[in-house]
Design a protein around this nucleic acid. Structure first.
Lengths: 288, 288
DNA sequence: CCGTATTACGCTAGCCGTAATGATG
DNA sequence: CATCATTACGGCTAGCGTAATACGG
């Protein structure tokens, strides 16, 4: 059996050209390497080196051996990486969500119900991306804003979210009790960027609006609460509270009033039953 | 660094199911294996086993590791095999010949001129096969009975061979001084099988002859020298001597009188120059 | 002479085996 | 109590380092 350390040492020698250089690279002594190469040669059963009195170099056999050794070492590295990745994925539940609110909803529940597991989450703009990720086991749980189709999928609706326009009370539109998105197309609008599918909705329904993008949430919150620009808010994100001197006007477009579906692979239904139980009690919880 | 012996032990365990069974298979003690698996687990950095108090089994991580281990061990085996094969080929000159006489000619010369090298030889019926073998480095030297074509090839003609029909003196045909193959088509003919291209020639020019095939040379020699059947002989094979009461009649067909060409790859011309020098003196040598 | 490879020699880490312990059906 | 895994302990192999030797540009 030819052990890995021999292959590693051979490879180092083949890269360095001399035993002394390789010995420095590997932090071992020259004689140790010399011995190892002799041992390797013996184990292989064929000469691997051209030796002169104070020079040693790989012959054809040795070059082939070094090439193979590189492949084997690479494969060993790959094995470790793959197994560690598998292990990581086995102890992680990754949530893929179409919007930030479901992340805020589910991550605490997941952390509580699956204590000991790492909970990760990502927000993606398109449901297709999310479903593809579920397929590849990149995500184990999804939250979508439309009913998914697929024989392999299990899902339950668990909450709704309703978009509103938040305005200063002195804003011209603030007299309205309700409005459609097209009525504010062309306006300047403050927008937080990490909002998943909402972003696509805005680009689509407000093609002429001027968006002021902010990707820091705290900064966004300040400007939205104090500045002169209208911004979006929902009952879920606001938590029932509006900043002083602000008004929130419901938006009537169908697409702006969504139902969230919590999705998993059917084979995982049993595993995630505790999560779904929690979600069925979600309205009561969110009353708190 | 995860050493090979650990992977081998893991693989054995994965095949055997229990440490004790694996320990027998590997001729090591159970505790040794137990230790090794703990060490492997530590090196991988992730759990590989489901342990109950007196049972141990691979978990998902472990199964993946075992699969990878099998591949790595296989690759190690393959490396050794490939290098040994390369070494063998580096110290072997393999002659590919179209007939037995060139083998008898060249092998002694090669052995003398390239002492220390192993000399191997094969007889193939078709020149195409031989040329393909040269291409693949399966052969380093060829002897063909026709001039080869190819930019990469070097060759020299070195001798001729002339086919004759050997007969009992009382055979009806023995009166002839010379003949064409078609004159003996339909006869019973004794044939030694390992004669390379001659065999194809016979099948082609004597489609109606009845061949008595013999693949043991000694037995063939006896029957050919003593029996009632005609057989083929050449000046090269007979060495100038005919058995008592036999006659050899020259065959006039062009294909039955061949010139042998000694072929090598152009890149090897220098290496085989000593061989060609010997072959240029071949007529003198063969006079001995 | 300095750089390089090999040989000699002694140390020690680590691998293995035996024995003992614990757990399970 | 038979089987299997783990722990404990001690021995021995073999890989390593230091020192010495040899060779070459």
């Amino acid at each position: 059996m030819i052990e890995m350390y021999l292959l590693e040492q051979l490879l180092a020698f083949s890269q360095c050209g001399t035993l002394s250089a390789a010995s420095e690279k590997l932090h071992v002594s020259q004689p140790a390497l010399s011995h190892s190469m002799q041992k390797l040669e013996e184990l292989m059963g064929v000469p691997l080196f051209e030796r002169t009195k104070n020079r040693i170099a790989l012959n054809e056999n040795g070059k082939l051996t070094a090439d193979c050794a590189a492949k084997i070492l690479e494969q060993e590295r790959e094995m470790i990486e793959r197994v560690r990745l598998l292990d990581q994925s086995r102890r992680t539940i990754t949530l893929g969500a179409c919007a930030p609110v479901p992340v805020a909803d589910l991550v605490p529940i997941l952390s509580r119900v699956y204590s000991g597991m790492t909970i990760a989450s990502e927000i993606r703009n398109s449901d297709e991306e999310l479903l593809a990720g579920l397929e590849k086991n990149q995500y184990q749980i999804l939250v979508l804003h439309e009913k998914p189709e697929g024989e392999e999928l299990y899902f339950e609706a668990y909450r709704e979210e309703h978009l509103m326009l938040q305005l200063p009370e002195n804003h011209p539109l603030s007299a309205k009790e309700q409005l459609y998105l097209q009525e504010i197309d062309g306006q300047n609008l403050l927008l937080y960027t990490k909002i998943g599918f909402w972003y696509e909705l805005c680009r689509q329904k407000l093609p002429n609006a001027h968006f002021l993008m902010m990707n820091e949430f705290d900064a966004f919150g300040e400007v939205a609460g104090a500045g002169a620009f209208p911004s979006f808010v929902t009952e879920a994100a606001a938590g029932g509270e509006l900043p002083e001197g602000r008004k929130a006007i419901p938006i009537l477009d169908e697409e702006a009033n969504v139902t969230y579906y919590c999705v998993c692979a059917k084979k995982d239904k049993k595993r995630f039953e505790p999560l779904y139980q929690e979600l069925r009690r979600f309205e009561k919880h969110s009353d708190r």
